[in-house]
């Protein structure tokens, strides 16, 4: 069963682009939320992660801030 993954990002942030590229390279499906055009999602991201930096990944409830390849790899069991 594939894991539920949400990526909170803005269209302009380079690490957001990289994190999504990384997921695509590993053929991992994710829900892409642009917090710059969705204020409610932005609030949700801040609440979940307790901070305001993007990107934020929600991997089945595990919150990872930034393009932290090691943590992401671990959380996904890659």
């Amino acid at each position: 069963m594939p894991k539920q993954i949400t990526v909170y990002s803005t269209t302009t942030c380079p690490y957001c682009i990289r994190v999504k590229q990384f997921l695509r390279d590993n053929k991992i499906a994710y829900k892409d939320i642009d917090v710059s055009s969705d204020q409610q999602a932005a609030d949700e991201m801040v609440k979940k992660s307790g901070q305001m930096g993007v990107p934020v990944l929600d991997i089945e409830g595990e919150i990872i801030v930034g393009f932290d390849r090691e943590k992401i790899t671990k959380a996904l069991g890659l």
């Binding site: 803005t10 269209t11 302009t12 942030c13 380079p14 690490y15 957001c16 917090v35 710059s36 055009s37 204020q39 932005a42 801040v46 901070q51 305001m52 930096g53 993007v54 801030v65």
Partner: peptide
């Protein structure tokens, strides 16, 4: 840092809409 203070307007700017 990352609680309102940032070094990258391009990345985090959109979070401060309005």
């Amino acid at each position: 840092k990352n609680l309102g203070l940032t070094y990258c307007a391009t990345c985090d700017g959109p979070l401060f809409q309005g």
